[in-house]
Design a protein around this nucleic acid. Structure first.
Lengths: 110, 110
DNA sequence: ATGTAATATTACCGTATAGTTATGAAGTAA
DNA sequence: TTACTTCATAACTATACGGTAATATTACAT
């Protein structure tokens, strides 16, 4: 991140944007177990088929998932394992913050 | 990212959201050199003072930057070094994309 | 060819947010 | 006090985006 110009910053920003929807994160989370088709993802996520399809299409466009149609089904799988590293990092951050708040909270409540 | 519930997914999503604006990334990028006040950040980023302030306020709210006022100036600095790891990961991913032409690719990987 | 299932896409609505302009608040110096 | 500097915060506009419902497309079966 040393000398990114405006063009590069937009790329990075757009990549992050793919990870700003809980539904998309849920889909990525689900795909950790292996490929799933749209019906399965729709059921697991609890969303509507149209909505899940839209999100999948977006994730595919950003090359976070791979698309492969077999018969009338379309199977999606993770294209980029490193996305989980991103989430781990963020979760770590959030975890640190929450535990810190808990400690502070403890000082006032204990 | 093994068993994140809906609540956790929203936290993660919101964290990523802070990184989806080129202007905010530029600010974070600039702060790698050390703390800067709003005037400096405004000049470097090329934005308006109001806009930069708004973004800084958002970054501070998400605890990505620290705020310290000295006199009439307000100095911001990185609160969470790990944000650069995130960016490195994303840049690496983008750099790996085959479809991108060489000179742009160089920006992400160099 | 007709019908059915799985997925994608379109059109629409509501909301969220980035940017701008103008104003407000806080500190400092005369 | 008044004036000036620095930063924050409205209020507003425009645009982007998520969700839904309806429709289109694709593949397969009968």
């Amino acid at each position: 991140m040393s000398k990114l110009d405006d063009r590069a910053l937009e790329y990075v920003a757009k990549y992050f944007k793919a990870l700003t929807e809980p539904m998309r994160l849920k889909v990525l989370n689900t795909l950790q177990d292996g490929e799933k088709n749209v019906s399965q993802l729709t059921e697991i996520s609890g969303g509507t088929q149209a909505n899940v399809s839209k999100h999948l299409s977006m994730l595919a466009q950003h090359e976070l998932v791979k698309r492969e149609s077999r018969g009338t089904n379309v199977y999606y799988s993770i294209a980029d394992q490193s996305v989980y590293e991103l989430c781990e990092l963020v979760c770590g951050q959030i975890g640190n913050r929450m535990s810190m708040n808990a400690d502070i909270k403890k000082m006032f409540t204990a």
